[in-house]
Amino acid sequence: MAGIVIDGISKAFGNTVALAALDLAVADREFVALLGPSGCGKTTLLRIIAGLETATTGRVLIGGRDVTNLPPRARGLAMVFQNYAVFPHLRVCDNIAFGLKMARAERTRIDRQVARTAELLQLAPYLDRYPAQLSGGQRQRVAVARALAVEPALLLMDEPLSNLDALLRLDMRAELKDVLREAGTTTIYVTHDQTEAMALADRIAVLHGGRIEQIGSPSAIYHSPATRFVGSFVGSPPMNFLRADAGRLMGIRPEDIDLVDAGAGLPFRVSVVEPLGAQTLLTGTTDGQVVRVALPGEHVIAAGATLFLRPRPDRIRWMDAATGNALAQAAG
């Protein structure tokens, strides 16, 4: 178990800057998600922490120890790869035991750890199988078991659920949260899926263009985005940004908008209605700007209708239209 410090890590591929002098501190036993669109540098950062990529500048400290110049094997970490990277020529039990065997652990410890992690990830019946005889979800479990078996100081996960189909992904997500909570390992988790990050992480670091745009609890990221990018990347549908006075943007979540009586709010012309069951999603225009509204429950609204909206004042997030940064939140 150990805390991580990323100290001024930057990475350039030729003239392309992948990471720009990035700082990040992860506490012991904390689960931090690196969230961002593809190409934002999140995977590069993870690979630098793992030692699979070398940083152009900066240091990585794991448990207070500078590991910047150490090879991956000497960093005391484990990793779950996007394509699982389960060794196809080894049986499940040998895959799980691989790290411990390489570390020349005692036979009894290896056996105990294999049994324990196999139990934890429901792999006990498959220990003698080869990966080719397993389903995608089971292979994913083997990859997680292999990582947990070495009892790493730090667990790195690179989009571990992205190759699973949607239903299985939901199951595995809950399962993973349960397993990792039990293991209590410091975890850095890379994903482009904001619901995954929200569901799993203690804190989320939103990356964009090689920088951390914002780092905070899922709730802070969701409700108080620090930049326009965070507001539009996190949440589905994303935050609305409406032009207001004095070069300001009004940021408001689709579900933080109420319908009011005619004439009492902003006129809103509905163009699309999407009944999703738990909520009804409206897309339309207000004052020539596109707005999306999420109403709880089911509503019968015809496309083309005109409604009146009122954003909840306490949920409005004011942004600087020029810089995209959040402004000091004065009353709107």
Partner: peptide, 11 residues
């Protein structure tokens, strides 16, 4: 990735 996994797990 298989090789990288091996490196991470002690090779």
């Amino acid at each position: 990735e298989l090789e990288e996994a091996a490196w991470v797990f002690g090779c």
